[in-house]
């Protein structure tokens, strides 16, 4: 088998898998233009009615705004704490640090509903039910495992002697982190950040329990729309998000193209 042949097959197969990943998006985009009052392909013609409903609805805007900042703040917190924790465990590398790292995975392994009961009880005592800080805390701690796992996987490729060398040359722990370790685990940090963000962005159960009436995040609003008649606005929101990612990625690509290659 020659080189091109083998790579070609792998690439073709990869594109098929990517097509599978994109498939529901191909359903969601036309659904957002449906002329019916429920989630379905357009019946007779394309209609902008649900886009209009979405754009003029302060409820949806509020929900998006709430979800956006809750997800952003809790992702930042989870990324900072999670990355430091993963690096610390990697560097200490003792039996106890291994235990800590394993414990960090727990929030992924326990059904959310059970945690929701517990955090509700705690927040009633602390008077944090229906508070922003309460939701951010809950989403941060449940987002941590994603960051710890992905950063740890990235750290696996780094030679520990790199750290040793840096310290040997007189770098402080802070400098070593900043200049030696973190730059080497950026892909892990980024995927951990995406996972933690999506975790918060999509999280419904905990918010139902501790959100009170003040917090109606996007998943909660969607669930409200689904329960009645599968409100097509949820397809509009999804399409909007797809457009937004497309925009960000192509803007970045355009910027790269303009920058001269070094």
């Amino acid at each position: 088998m020659n080189r091109h042949h083998a790579t070609g097959i792998v690439t073709a197969f990869a594109w098929m898998v990517l097509g599978f990943l994109a498939l529901p998006a191909f359903a969601v985009v036309p659904i957002s233009f449906t002329d019916t009052r429920y989630l379905s392909m357009p019946d007779e013609h394309f209609s902008l009615q649900h886009w209009r409903a979405f754009l003029s609805s302060s409820e949806w805007h509020n929900s998006i705004w709430q979800s956006l900042w809750i997800a952003t703040v809790s992702t930042l917190a989870a990324v900072v704490a999670g990355t430091l924790c993963a690096i610390g465990c990697w560097r200490v590398s003792s039996r106890w640090s291994e235990r800590v790292r394993t414990a960090m995975i727990l929030p992924m392994a326990v059904p959310t509903i059970v945690y929701a009961l517990g955090i509700y009880r705690l927040y009633v005592d602390l008077d944090l039910v229906g508070s922003a800080i309460g939701i951010v805390f809950a989403h941060t701690v449940t987002g941590l495992p994603y960051v710890v796992l992905t950063v740890s996987a990235s750290l696996a490729n780094i030679d520990p002697r790199l750290e040793q060398a840096a310290r040997g040359l007189g770098a402080s722990v802070g400098q070593t982190l900043r200049w030696v370790i973190v730059p080497n685990v950026v892909p892990g940090i980024l995927s951990g950040a995406i996972f933690a963000f999506i975790h918060s962005w999509d999280e419904l159960i905990v918010v139902i329990f501790i959100g009170g009436r003040a917090f109606f995040t996007l998943p909660r609003r969607m669930w409200d729309g689904i329960n009645d008649n599968l409100d097509p606005v949820i397809a509009v929101v999804a399409t909007g998000m797809i457009l937004f990612t497309l925009l960000v990625l192509s803007a970045e690509l355009a910027l790269r193209a303009r920058r001269p290659k070094s």
Binding site: L18, L21, A22, P24, A25, V28, I194, I198, D202, L218, P219, M222, W223, I226, I234, A235, A238, M241, I242, F244, T245, L249
Partner: peptide
């Protein structure tokens, strides 16, 4: 790869 993330699991 990132595309599906933006469509909630429900949708």
């Amino acid at each position: 790869v990132l595309l599906p993330f933006w469509i909630s699991v429900l949708v």
